[in-house]
């Protein structure tokens, strides 16, 4: 009897101690998962849990994205998850995405999982034409994407039509040529066959090495208005800030590299970029909303931090990660040779 009371008591106290939670859905580039998130959790608590679940250590490139009134926003680390302007119905949904891009994918993306998530995200942007990619580069990229998915080309397995269901090229590229799907498949397969021996990780890295050389890779564009009221585009990326004409997102009219900017600030909708060089004029512009200004400033701070960090020695954590990745690569290569 006494035992029964004790066990009932401990059950009650356990029940009382259970913190209040809500359900969060996280959508990554290739998976969806749900977590019970405590009411008091801050953005960082949830983000760390997602990274731990994915086994991702190069966390600094990523963020949890949500959309509010057609504007994208990122979860802030020090603010409570529910303190954000997120729809309050459960599950509260976030997209786990790369927020910042490396300057050099080969040097900076160490873990296979990091490379894979970048590969999937950049491939989607290219196929959806968010990034302009010339036709010849699109074909070469498609051939690496096929190598990553199908492994080495084997004509006895990869028969005519094996790519029929795959989305491999941007529609714009397909429309530029009078070629049947079979002709595209033939062309892509000819290059795919050239990549024999490349592992999935290597093929994905080759893909990223090509993609990072396209002009729009890693650039976040924002519609702005200069002091004269002219509409322009502001681009924020790993190297700095860029100003574009509306009709040309490829070549900036002006650029401000991060190491030539003294200060960036905004008050209400007005944004100010103060160059380091005093002779260069201060650049002022207006964005569409205060919410957009917040996003621009967040991206500026994050990209600037990474820009400075890249120019210093690697942290112990990164050194260790790189050493592990090298060992792992060497081990895989040995195994392949043995086979």
């Amino acid at each position: 009897m006494a035992e029964a009371i004790t066990s009932r008591m401990s059950f009650t106290s356990l029940k009382r101690k259970q913190p209040k939670t809500f359900t969060v859905r996280i959508i990554t580039m290739d998976a969806e998962m749900e977590f019970n998130c405590e009411m008091k959790w801050k953005g960082k608590d949830l983000f760390d849990l997602v990274c731990r679940t994915l086994g991702l250590r190069e966390t600094w490139f990523f963020g949890l994205q949500y959309t509010i009134k057609d504007t994208i926003a990122w979860l802030r680390w020090i603010k409570k998850v529910l303190g954000h302007d997120v729809p309050k119905e459960e599950p509260v949904t976030f997209h786990f995405l790369a927020k910042f891009y490396p300057e050099n994918v080969e040097e900076e993306l160490v873990q296979d999982i990091t490379q894979h998530l970048f590969f999937l995200q950049v491939k989607k942007q290219i196929l959806e034409e968010k990034i302009y990619c010339p036709p010849e580069a699109s074909v070469l990229l498609a051939s690496y994407a096929v190598q990553a998915k199908y492994g080495d080309y084997d004509p006895s397995v990869h028969k005519r039509g094996f790519l029929a269901e795959e989305e491999l090229l941007p529609k714009r590229v397909i429309n530029l040529y009078q070629m049947t799907p079979e002709m595209w498949e033939e062309r892509i397969t000819a290059w795919y066959a050239e990549h024999r021996g490349r592992t999935r990780d290597e093929a994905e890295m080759e893909y990223l090495k090509i993609a990072q050389d396209t002009e729009m890779y890693g650039v976040n564009y924002f519609l702005i208005r200069n002091k004269k009221g002219t509409e322009l585009l502001l681009g924020v990326d790993a190297l700095g800030l860029h100003i574009y004409d509306l009709e040309n997102r490829l070549t900036p009219k002006t650029s401000f590299p991060w190491n030539e900017i003294r200060n960036i600030s905004y008050s209400d909708k007005e944004f100010t970029i103060k160059p380091l060089e005093k002779k260069i004029d201060v650049f002022k512009f207006n964005s569409s909303k205060l919410r957009v200004n917040k996003l621009i400033l967040q991206l500026c701070i994050g990209n600037h931090d990474l820009f400075m960090r890249r120019r210093k020695a690697d942290s112990l954590e990164v050194q260790q990660m790189k050493a592990q990745a090298r060992e792992e690569k060497a081990r895989k290569q040995m195994e392949r040779q043995r086979l």
Binding site: Y177, M179, I210
Partner: peptide, 27 residues
């Protein structure tokens, strides 16, 4: 700064030429 697509220039040139005969006039 290395040229864009530096290690892939040869492959890209070959693909460009191979696509050329099929280009739409508007393209």
């Amino acid at each position: 700064q290395p040229a864009k697509f530096a290690p892939y220039q040869k492959a890209l040139r070959e693909i460009r030429y191979s696509l050329l005969p099929f280009a739409n006039e508007s393209g």
